[in-house]
């Protein structure tokens, strides 16, 4: 994929994503009905859940590309993984900020060490570690390999986060959408959630593509600098 195509793809997805984001904000604040028990604060759900979905998607990409990078060693896969990991960290941070804001009013506490919250915080720190490991070694190639391993280990946490509410005693409610017997949400709430999911996914892919394009340019610059240095070395 050429850099021009990446930029145009990012722009197209960005425009679509922003349009859908405006639509879902309108739905959240003016259209969807207020939940009877939790009230207004339940509207945080429409940004909390899509952010978690996007974070899991991003870390899934990191693990997949990391695994293939370890196998075939193509630098572009490492750049994809790095770009996705950055986005995953941003969206996990959103989950970790919006969750306590909701929990304070519905559970009466900002934070509790229940399984899903603890595992999500762990996921965040694993991917902070992903970037620390990359920059901790003198040999960049080694850093890329170590971070790919960290990315794969981190993504193993994702299914555990999903089933934690079923396996352990948890304050989090059981899944209301991803159920074997179908979603348990009223139509307007489900519609708003799905719009938000799509909007956030498009916004993520737009920025992810832009970040990947930048990483490709950086790699190109590094390689041209390295070849210039070797030519100068040969001349002198």
């Amino acid at each position: 994929m050429s850099l021009k195509a990446i930029r145009w793809g990012a722009l197209a997805l960005g425009v679509l994503g922003i349009g859908l984001t405006l639509l879902f904000h309108w739905m959240v604040f003016f259209w969807v009905s207020t939940e009877a028990t939790l009230g207004i604060v339940q509207r945080i759900f429409y940004i909390h859940v899509p952010s978690a979905w996007v974070a899991f998607l991003a870390f899934g990409i990191v693990a997949l590309c990391g695994a293939v990078y370890l196998w075939i060693g193509d630098d572009r896969l490492d750049q994809v993984a790095k770009s996705a990991a950055e986005g995953g960290l941003v969206f996990t941070a959103i989950v970790l900020i919006t969750g306590p804001l909701w929990a304070r009013l519905s559970w009466g506490t900002w934070w509790t060490w229940e399984p899903r919250l603890t595992l999500t915080l762990l996921l965040f720190f694993i991917f902070v570690g992903y970037f620390m490991v990359r920059n901790a070694t003198d040999n960049p190639e080694q850093g890329k390999k170590y971070s790919a391993v960290v990315g794969i280990i981190g993504a193993l946490n994702i299914p555990l986060i999903h089933v934690s509410v079923l396996w352990f005693r948890s304050l989090h409610p059981e899944p209301v959408v991803a159920r074997t017997d179908g979603p348990q949400l009223p139509g307007d709430m489900l519609g708003t959630l799905m719009t938000a999911l799509l909007a956030w996914t498009l916004v993520f892919f737009s920025l992810f593509l832009l970040r990947y394009g930048t990483a490709r340019l950086e790699a190109r610059m590094e390689s041209s600098r390295a070849s210039e240095t070797s030519v100068q070395g040969l001349v002198s």
């Binding site: 509207r43 945080i44 950055e86 959103i94 804001l101 909701w102 916004v203 832009l210």
Partner: peptide, 23 residues
């Protein structure tokens, strides 16, 4: 409740805009 909703959405946007600025 409104303040919590407002802060949640504002924080999400600030983080995303931060990522855009960094890129």
């Amino acid at each position: 409740h409104f303040w919590h909703v407002f802060i949640a959405y504002a924080a999400a946007w600030i983080l995303i805009l931060g990522w855009i600025v960094s890129i």
